[in-house]
């Protein structure tokens, strides 16, 4: 488990980019934190680092935004508006996992039971205007990711 201190939007994006650089094409990352914590900001850094040039919009309304990236397919999910985990069927969640892809999931609790288990859980808390970011690995893949990621800047 890692505890990092992140100051500002750019640093949050850079953290996303650092995780992306170490991530395998197939992995599942949960993002936990209050509204305004910076979950989508971290995801923006992650997706831009993998070669996406355009905007990374909030998926709160659409629930899901797909990205075709040079080395993988990546899905950004925001389950905030989900009333029941079964609603994930409406999004075709099973199709998203075949073939393997990267899943970045905000508000994963609302999809409990229907979501694939995470390799990594990123939890963002408040510390004044800064953010405390806790990253926990939940699999061998997650361990490898954390070992390969260059996170020295935030330690």
């Amino acid at each position: 488990m890692l505890n990092l201190k992140v100051a500002g939007e750019q640093a949050q994006e850079a953290l996303g980019a650092a995780l992306a650089a170490a991530s395998p094409p197939s992995c599942v990352i949960y993002l936990i934190g209050d509204l305004g914590a910076g979950k989508t900001t971290l995801v923006r850094g992650f997706i831009h680092a993998l070669g996406h040039k355009e905007a990374v919009k909030s998926p709160t309304y659409t629930l899901l935004e797909p990205y075709d990236l040079p080395d993988r397919r990546c899905y950004h999910l925001d389950l905030y508006r989900l009333a029941a985990p079964e609603e994930l069927e409406y999004l075709g969640i099973r199709d998203l996992l075949q073939p393997a892809a990267t899943l970045l999931v905000e508000w994963p609790k609302r999809g409990e039971g229907e979501l694939p288990p995470p390799d990594l859980v990123v939890e963002i808390g408040h510390d004044g205007e800064c953010r405390q970011v806790q990253i926990k690995s939940h699999s061998k893949k997650g361990n490898n990711l954390l070992q390969a990621a260059d996170l020295a800047a935030w330690n």
């Binding site: 509204l35 305004g36 989508t40 905007a55 909030s58 309304y61």
Partner: peptide
């Protein structure tokens, strides 16, 4: 267009906060 949150979404989320 909005590069991140829609205006209504920002309204809703700030209201929630």
């Amino acid at each position: 267009e909005s590069l991140d949150d829609a205006a209504g979404e920002a309204f809703d989320k700030t209201a929630k906060m």
